[in-house]
Design a protein around this nucleic acid. Sequence first.
DNA 1: GTCTATAGGGCGATAGAC
DNA 2: GTCTATCGCCCTATAGAC
Lengths: 187, 187
Amino acid sequence: MGRWEPDARGRMTQAALELYLEPGYEQTTVADIAARAGVTERTFFRHFSDKREVLFSGSTLLQEAVLAAIAAAPEDAPPLVAAAAGMDAAAVALQSQPDPTFPRRRAAVIAANPSLQERELLKMATLANAVAEALTDRGADPEEAAVAAEAAGAAFRLAFDRWTTSEEPLDLRALVAEGVARFRALG
Amino acid sequence: MGRWEPDARGRMTQAALELYLEPGYEQTTVADIAARAGVTERTFFRHFSDKREVLFSGSTLLQEAVLAAIAAAPEDAPPLVAAAAGMDAAAVALQSQPDPTFPRRRAAVIAANPSLQERELLKMATLANAVAEALTDRGADPEEAAVAAEAAGAAFRLAFDRWTTSEEPLDLRALVAEGVARFRALG
DNA sequence: GTCTATAGGGCGATAGAC
DNA sequence: GTCTATCGCCCTATAGAC
């Protein structure tokens, strides 16, 4: 048994989510989060670049899952199909989380705070850029790749939003597929 | 001739843009901007909610132009056509600015600073939501409206990005139209 | 206009794991 | 010994309160 309790990151994320829900994001100081997680303020900032990032540390893994799925897609799959495979992988990852209440609570906090929305949008845009690059690496035309990545990303966002706000439990993968189909039907 | 020099907002925006380019966004303090614009720090924060917002005060006018164009679109125009009309109006507004170098310099600063990108993405997302609402008000199905708004918004972003980074001068309206066509061709 | 709390970065010290 | 996580105290600028 070491000097420190394990999983400081996880504890900080949990503490932050709880405090951001109640009493609220603006009302919560980093010192509050650190205290609840049993670390110092300084430790918080070594793990997370700022007060918002604590809710987004999972996005790296999600991005990896997305890119892996795109790489695994059939070589002859058109850009939108490959991008959709990536979004499907993201949906699978989100639905198979240990704590199924996490995404919903997290989404509620983000929806209530513009400055957290900004960070979420940046993560999404970063992901879309990575997807576009992965598609061009597969040989797609850059413009077409960018459009496919944006369409798939937007479909995912709309689906995710419905999934986290719906009263009854929905299947995220189905929502994503439905959204992609709507973009395909734009013409 | 009044007690104050006129157009404090414009001077602050100009000063901020220049300083954000050189020595850079992070290196520039609000006090620096205020001093260059000949106002106090307090005045800056009365005009702009934070250090980022000084580059985004024009977005309100842009949004109004977009929504007006959507409202003016033929009643029987499908959602994507109406949304595209809104994006075209935005392109017109941007191309007919008094200082044609402004958008390019502004875009360069934003591209170099993630925290400014976040704000830009939030403005874009807010606009997309407003567009989606305007489309549903016209009688469109909410899901279809959201998809059309996202597609038009993404087309605009991709076009705007090319427009601000291209070596030779391009026609923003044409780029936007081309982008919308690409989304239409996704199926 | 003045005052103040908080975000967030820099740096050195410390204490464990290996 | 090295490497890495934690801590403590310095600081400034932001942004909100008074």
